[in-house]
Design a protein around this nucleic acid. Structure first.
Lengths: 212, 212
DNA sequence: GAGTGTGAAGCAGTTCACAGCG
DNA sequence: CGCTGTGAACTGCTTCACACTC
């Protein structure tokens, strides 16, 4: 009924990631079939919401029964682009960059960090895992030679925009930004910001609110 | 015109964080007055959006002129609850926890990590900065004795819910979750999730989309 | 009977457009 | 004249309710 050319709302895509996580848990526990109600109560949504979200992808549920865990897992992986391995470059091998590099779930999901760049001369040439850290001057050739699909930015705010401009010029179309700055990019490059401060400040706003 | 009892949309609160960052930059550059247009082009919003967002807080702009950088900075800090110092406990002193602990902008914004908990016996008793890492069994008394306002969760997914239940019982009303799991909490506890995977998968979805 | 799939209604956030003030 | 502040229109997401299927 639905075809794949239709755009999926961004809010839905984010929830699909969560559903996939839950499905994998269900799969590991040997559950083979799951209802929208069960997915919903695992968090972050109502049963109606789950059904609406999944309806964007087609009709996979069996009425009276629920969804096949195996089938739905496969569909979600496909929609989220997790069937292929993505080649990722990490810019910045500081605290945050290092933590991201060693974050196991990335690799488990097919995000393969093959390239690490840092401008600190003391770090260039040393290793993170078995990746040799390369200097900023090697950025363009590294992106090309390693056939990078996606770049994670974990450098200080002041140098982020300059580096990202070069990354965009090199033809990269997806950027995950951890630097506390708002990057300016062409419309055809996908950008997601992960801001620790924004979330923390939204919490402190909530705390302030509660006592008037 | 607006009173402070009115709820501010969540999307607006998140943008206020960004505006504050921009205002601080403007302040450092010696700019004293700024128009909605200028704030907007720094990223993430249109001029109309900026004005609408700020109108939730009251009328601070001078028509024909713009907003006073100093005044607006103060208002935003107040609304975001950044006038007080918040006492923060960090659960989990692994890679991510350590990176968060050493993330300077937190402290600069008045988020003071006074307590670190980890269940690894090898880590308990050692130090992160000048904070002594305490064991999981000390959780409740640490939250009480250190008068914690806000908890950051950076432990593995499997143990997160159990710890958080204890944190909630201890009366904490704000939780920032870095664990890749959906936490179940009472409605009166504010929760923000920071998920590296969700953002990354939303990017890989975007990349997949682009080529049909 | 149990549970999906989906139009329609409801709600929230965004954009528009312009009156009004400095 | 420039730029804010804001009702009104709009867009898009969420919730509802129920026909439909297994």
């Amino acid at each position: 009924m639905n075809d794949f050319t239709k755009r999926i709302p961004d809010a839905t895509v984010r929830r699909l990631s969560l559903y996939l996580r839950f499905l994998e848990d269900f799969g590991r526990s040997g559950v083979t079939s799951v209802a929208s109600e069960a997915l919903a109560e695992r968090g972050g949504a109502t049963a109606a919401q789950v059904r609406k979200d999944l309806s964007y992808l087609g009709s996979f549920g069996k009425r009276g029964l629920g969804y096949s865990v195996a089938e739905l897992t496969g569909v979600l992986r496909g929609v989220l682009g997790l069937d292929s391995v993505w080649r990722v470059a990490l810019l910045g091998a500081g605290r945050i960059g290092t933590a991201l590099f060693e974050y196991e779930p990335f690799r488990a999901r097919g995000f393969n960090i093959t390239t690490v760049i840092d401008n600190d001369p003391c770090k260039v040439g040393s290793h993170l895992g078995d990746i040799r850290i390369r200097g900023e001057d090697e950025l363009e050739c590294a992106l090309r030679d390693d056939a990078i699909d996606l770049v994670i930015v974990a450098v200080p705010a002041v140098v982020a925009q300059g580096l990202v401009d070069r990354v965009v010029t090199a033809g990269i179309k997806a950027i995950l930004n951890y630097a506390p700055t708002q990057l300016r990019l062409p419309d055809d490059v996908a950008l997601r910001n992960v801001s620790m401060l924004v979330e923390l400040e939204s919490l402190s706003h909530a705390l302030t609110r509660r006592t008037g």
